[in-house]
Amino acid sequence: MNVLQRSGAPQDPLSKALLNGQRPGTGGAAAIRLTEITKVYGRGQGAVHAVDRLSLTADDGEFVCIVGASGCGKSTLLSIVAGLDAPTAGQVDTGGRRVAIMFQEPALFPWLTARRNVELALRARRVPKDERRRRAADLLETVHLAEFADKRPHELSGGMRQRVALARALAQDADVLLMDEPFGALDAMTRDLLHDELERICSERRLSVLFVTHNVREAARLGDRVVLLSSRPGRVIEEYHVPRTGPRRIDSAGVADLASRVTDRLREEMRRHG
């Protein structure tokens, strides 16, 4: 079931793969390749370097968590990958893969029911009407919301709305899912359940995920790789690979251990900024 499970990384191409920012042992092509991305807001004296020559690669089916303090350009980076924002310099290559994005807010259309919200994403891709209905029902089933299909967003809880947003993102048939702190506004219990859900769905659909969060534990819980960014300008300062050997829990020792190491490194980075 776990397509992300990898074993026996070939020793020889390891250094080469790491040099490319590619995960060893996958053999797959990069789903996202960011090369020397720079984003500057404003010009002259007041110019702010949000992201500076950032290079990052995510493989097909890889779950990459991006953590960093405020102002490290995490959200900017996702906007650039999603094509909502243009980089000042550098290249984004997704090899023609379809990209969907989820925000911290569900961003559902409040005048449409859950089902119609999902159907609209299918409609935007010109899926025929009959198929839209069927696929929207399937997708809501996937996020365990079949019985709430005819509710409007304001009739749903925060966690349920975010699951509709996930169903809508999946409706875009994306190979790459960009998530900008999608569970940041949810309570811990709901978040834990959604972590399990997301993990299941991503591995079933072999999605490549760029998951931005400021919650280090969440990153350690979900990621195949945790990428730590420096603050202003954003740059990759550390990467942690997490081999998958089975289901993880947010309170397991391994996750806690990784989280504390990432946190220590993050604090060190913050002290550097005074």
Binding site: V236, I237, E239, T245
Partner: peptide, 17 residues
């Protein structure tokens, strides 16, 4: 840019059965 590997699931429930 450093790269480290870490086991993250020792406390997790192992096995896919």
């Amino acid at each position: 840019m450093a790269s480290t590997r870490t086991p993250a699931d020792q406390g997790g429930r192992p096995g896919t059965s």
